[in-house]
Write a protein that binds this DNA or RNA. Structure first.
Lengths: 338, 338
DNA sequence: CCGGGAGATGATACCGCTAACCTTTATTCG
DNA sequence: CGAATAAAGGTTAGCGGTATCATCTCCCGG
């Protein structure tokens, strides 16, 4: 504003000159105002305003070896389930003056490793990883960097460091039990690709565990692996009903599969649960508005984000140490579709 | 790997020592391998591997005053429409070795300003802003920083720098015309809060323009402002039908409002478009799967992200200069609901 | 046989900030 | 009243890279 030489951002020494103090005093006035006399503080603040000074955090972090950036790797940004978690993380970080860098791994370990490497290059203060399996090199890099990490895809048994999640195994088991309790005996199970991540595998184990507990056989004709998406839900519905397994209920363990299937039932005029019962895995708003509303699980997506950021900051700011597993529970929402 | 002193990340000089060259040569071998002899390059690469070196980009950026970080401010991360755009941005940036920082403004100029200030503090190489109105201080800071900016909420007439978007005005006008062409005469219009952003205002202007063009009056009883969300769509449906305006079609100009309304019609057993026609604004997958499938607009959400990142990188890497407006068109998807 | 340009590498001085230590000037109290 | 202590501010030396220029070798043509 004051005849700033355009093209060159104001530096601390410019502020210092205007305020007639040393650069160090400017630094203190901004970071630790208590340590500077009120008059000087006022002069500095005024000078900051006049020259339009925005502190260079690159220099600051380099000098103090302290960063205020957190790196987040999610399989995909374009997925409302992850988006809730991201929003939760973002909310907490902003309140604490931290920044968020995001990368998507596209469901692959190699891409995750590249993202982690890039983040470590930026000297992030901590990492949040959605996936719970990682390339050996990624693990080695994180170990070397010695920064805190939170994983939050599932309550994995072998966490890198901290985990904030819910048990996908227990959730799937609980829903399967719920269906069994309601009297369904031939329960179909539709899952996203099992090879992609531990979450899906946990869910299938949970489904199988509930069947076993009930003394029912695991029938491969009742289990289907499909890609994500509405259309895949429709396809799964068809294939399961035609597959000889004769399901009386179908548990769609992920994504929007259940929505696709439920709408397809509407379209065909099939009564639900008369023709077949439908249960979903995620508490997408919409499920409650369908006809009939669909039974599902309430998962703490947003809370996972919030707590992940919190435990990470606790570690970064020295309020906590060591591994930690936070189990944020789930809950069954029973509706008319079962 | 090699007896690395834990807790201390390897620096370039450590690599240099192992490779028996100067730090400068390491720098060159990594950034501009052509300028280093093959033997030395190999030694450096080997040394990098042995010490587990990850270049410190804070130091690099500080020294070269070149950053590879882009800042993005969206109103909300937790909204699938923005999420598509973010994914598009992220995809392009990753291919070019750039990083993405995200902040959400929560639909407020003050929060946007804070996010921009934080990003400028990180010395981002460029900014992408979803909103198209900004606080004067935000504008001043961006000007001072002299970095390229892309706005992408709507094809605003007074861009800060570059715009990549579609015309919300023209899109709403096109849909209203479409309804008029189909013979609807009492067209209701449901919008998100007009005060929140230019996009909503553009859409309402477009609606009004189409009516005027057709010689129809603007009837305030047919226009409703509601918060986002499925439930608000239901509420809007009720209020418009009871409001005395007697609509024969309703154009829901945003969010998931139309979905809420369409499902409510199902629930009540109302024929659509018999009782009332329904049109939506965004190409949410689901709209095509409802009964009946809902007429809507195909908006280039993902493409906006991709192109935004591309034009920004063009400027950052010196392949382009000056303002630029990219109009990514929209398209009407006519379905059975109208 | 020597001047000179190209190619490879090194030395040095920063980038903008903060940690750590130092000086100066009150302030306190035995 | 003087030594001890605190409060406020300054000085200096990096943080880990890169820009810039200098140096050294090698090879060429005249």
């Amino acid at each position: 504003m004051d005849g700033d030489p355009p093209g060159a951002a104001a530096r601390m020494r410019d502020v210092a000159r205007v305020a007639q103090v040393s650069a160090m005093t400017v630094s203190r006035a901004l970071k630790d105002p208590e340590r500077v006399s009120p008059e000087v503080r006022a002069r500095v603040e005024e000078a900051v305003r006049r020259v339009g000074y925005v502190p260079n955090r690159l220099a600051g972090s380099l000098s103090s070896s302290r960063s205020n950036v957190i790196g987040l790797v999610v399989p995909s940004i374009d997925n409302s389930l992850f988006a809730s978690t991201i929003q939760g993380i973002s909310d907490v970080l902003r309140r604490h003056g931290h920044e968020l860098m995001i990368a998507s791994s596209g469901y692959g370990e190699a891409a995750e490793e590249a993202a982690i490497r890039a983040f470590l290059g930026q000297r992030v203060a901590g990492l949040i990883l959605h996936d719970t399996t990682h390339s050996p090199e990624a693990v080695a890099m994180i170990r070397r960097a010695g920064i805190p990490v939170v994983e939050n895809g599932t309550l994995t048994r072998q966490p890198l460091d901290m985990v904030v999640s819910y048990s996908n195994h227990d959730a799937a088991m609980a829903m399967t039990r719920h269906l069994l309790r309601l009297g369904y005996r031939r329960i179909g199970f539709v899952t996203l690709p099992l090879a992609a991540n531990e979450r899906s595998r946990d869910r299938r184990r949970g489904y199988a565990a509930a069947l076993e507990e009930a003394g029912l056989p695991y029938d491969a004709r009742l289990v289907l692996e499909v890609p994500p998406g509405l259309a895949a839900g429709v396809e799964a519905l068809d294939r399961l009903l035609a597959g000889g397994g004769d399901p009386d209920a179908i548990f769609f363990a992920g994504d929007v599969l259940a929505i696709g299937a439920a709408l397809e039932c509407n379209r065909r005029g099939w009564p639900v649960p008369g023709r077949v019962a439908i249960a979903a895995f995620d508490n997408i708003d919409l499920l409650g508005h369908l006809v009939p509303p669909v039974t599902t699980l309430r998962l703490p997506r947003h809370e996972i984000g919030r707590r992940s950021a919190e435990v990470l900051l606790d570690r970064i700011e020295g309020r906590a140490t060591g591994p930690l597993a936070v189990d944020l529970r789930f809950e069954i929402i029973h509706r008319a579709s079962t």
